[in-house]
Amino acid sequence: MASQCRARVVGPWGASTLGLVLLSGCGVETFLDPQGPVAAQQRLHFWQVTGLMALVVLPVLTLTPWLLWRYRDRGGADYEPRWGFSRGWEIALWGGPALVVAVLAALLWINTTRLDPYAPLASDANSLRVQAVGYDWKWLFLYPDLGIASVDLLAFPAGRPLEIELTSATVMQSFFVPALGSQVYAMGGMSTWLHLGADAPGRFRGENSQYNGEGFHMQKFEAVAMDEAAFEGWAQNAATASALDTAALDALEQKGVASDLAHALDRPSDDILFGGLPDDLFARVMAETAKAPMAPHDMAAGR
C-alpha cells in the first residue's frame, strides 16, 4: 500500500520502539509523518504539547526515585515528621501547573480553531467536493460534481483541498486517514464535514475507526492523491463505468466488505467505480437511513 518507507518519525516512545519500527520497515502511516497540511499542523502541536508536558513529567520521573533513596528508612537523612506545609511550595505547586495549563490552553484554542474539521483549508486552488457514505463494511465515495462514484477508493488531486461530507447508511462510523490528519464521525440521518488535503501524490491508508461489527477490521480504504492530470484521467475512466443503479445500491447495503460487493456486482476487481449517479443520492441515503418506521399496530394491520 505505502510505496515508500517512512519510519523515521515515530517518536519519543523510547529508542527500542523506534528501532522496532525501523526493523519492521515499510507501511508506517501516521500524522507524525504528515502528508498534508492538517496532519503537519497536528504534528507540530503534538510535539509542542509533549515538550511542555515533559516539564511536568520529568521532575516526577527523576525526583521520585531520588526521594525514595535519599529519604529511605535508616538512611541517615534529615527527618521532619511534623512538616506538612510550606507557603512557598504551595504557590509553586498550584502556580506551576496552572502556568503550564495556561500555555497549553492557548495552544489548544489556536489549534482547535485552525484545525476545525468544518473549516475549509486555506488554499488558492478550488476544493474538490466528495461525499462519503459509510456502509457495513465499506465506504462509498460520491463525486457529485463529476457524476462518478467509487468504493473504498478516495482519489483526489494532490495540492487541492478536499471537502468531504459524511454520512452513514448504517451505524456510527469514523472516517480517518492517519497520514492526512483529522477524523470525524459519520452518522445515520445526518451529515458531518471534514476538510483534508495532501501535499504531494501518494497512496494513504484510510479506515473506519469506530467499531461496527464483524467486518470492522476489514473496513479499510485507499486515499490516493494524484497529480491533476492523473486525476482527470482517473475521473474520465470512472465515468465510463456502469451507473450506480438500484441494484448496486441494494448490493451496497448488504453487510460485507468491498470484495463481497465486487463479487455481488460481478465486477472484476476491488476497484469498484460507478459512472453515473442518481440525483441527490447523498440526501436520499440520509433520508432513507432516518426514515420513520411503521408503527407496530400499522405493521400488524399489514400496511
Binding site: Q42, V49, N111, T112, L115, S174, S182, Q183, S209
Partner: peptide, 16 residues
C-alpha cells in the same frame, strides 16, 4: 491525557 484533551490532537488519536 493532556494530548487527548486537545481536540485537534484527539482528531488523530481518538478511537485508536
Amino acid at each position: 491525557g493532556i494530548v487527548l484533551a486537545n481536540p485537534s490532537l484527539d482528531y488523530v488519536t481518538h478511537n485508536t
